[in-house]
Amino acid sequence: MTHVPTAETAAGAEPTGTAAEALLGTDSTRFRHDYLEVRGLRVAFGGFVAVRDVDLTVTQGDLRFLIGPNGAGKTTLIDAVTGLASATGSARFGGKELLGRGTHRIARDGVGRTFQTASVFEELTVLQNLDIAAGARRGPLTMLRRRGAVPEAVEQALELVGLTALRDTAAGVLAHGQKQWLEIGMLLVQDAHLLLLDEPVAGMTHAEREATGELLRRIGSQRVVVVVEHDMDFLRSFADSVTVMHQGQVLAEGTVAEVQNDPAVVEVYLGSPVSTEPPTTQAAGPLTTQEDA
């Protein structure tokens, strides 16, 4: 019954390309050579240290995947960078220190994130969700007026994430994958230049994953993107580089192949039954065989 997005509507078709250019190309001079630089990050909840001594550098054009067993501290790392969890150390983006500042100020400096469980505004329409995401810099007079024309960036984002036909649908009735896409669209109109995505393809069909991967790749060429993901197939298809976390620390970092052959990584995944499967089998055989299987 609901409109299921396909790879074509999301990323493949021709008009989408222009929408992407228009949306991603805007104002990128300001951030062109920006990168995320995390140094000595530490997050403690009471006595429990969830993240310790984390160093991480992610540049534009390097689609970075952040993996690790459950409880490794991936979400906590994102929480720290976006001001949700208080942390010590340093996290800089665009030359600005992010730690110790209010969440909404960090967001205004171009840092956007999604959540493990999609959190769109369910009672508002797709269009309203995007319009709100695009509006943090609006003045009081604009806010007090009704939305006249749809902002151009919103129009483009609708096209880019394939939700144009569903613009007046309440976000609450969207399929799971569509909600995740809406979230990505919201990050784009928000003009985020550092995108932190927490398990964006969880619960998506294969086709939806492919489409999302293509979209992220395209975004990654213009923005700094960090994707937290458990799905190893997805990772192998789209990651430029991988950071592996374990028990709050960075265990390994490198290309997909490097990380997969790292004995420490193999051991961690062997010890954790939930996510064992893909990496273990990979360690046994070459990458290509896995993809055929």
């Binding site: 209010g102 967001a107 956007g112 994130r113 959190s119 508002l124 509006g135 943090a136 810099r137 009704r146």
Partner: peptide, 28 residues
Amino acid sequence: QLMVSRFGELLVAVRDGEDRVRFLGYDP
């Protein structure tokens, strides 16, 4: 006027997802 304005939409968003609104750069 307040309900149909952008402020009204934002107000509903704050009601339903205060934290989400914060991550969009607004102060709820």
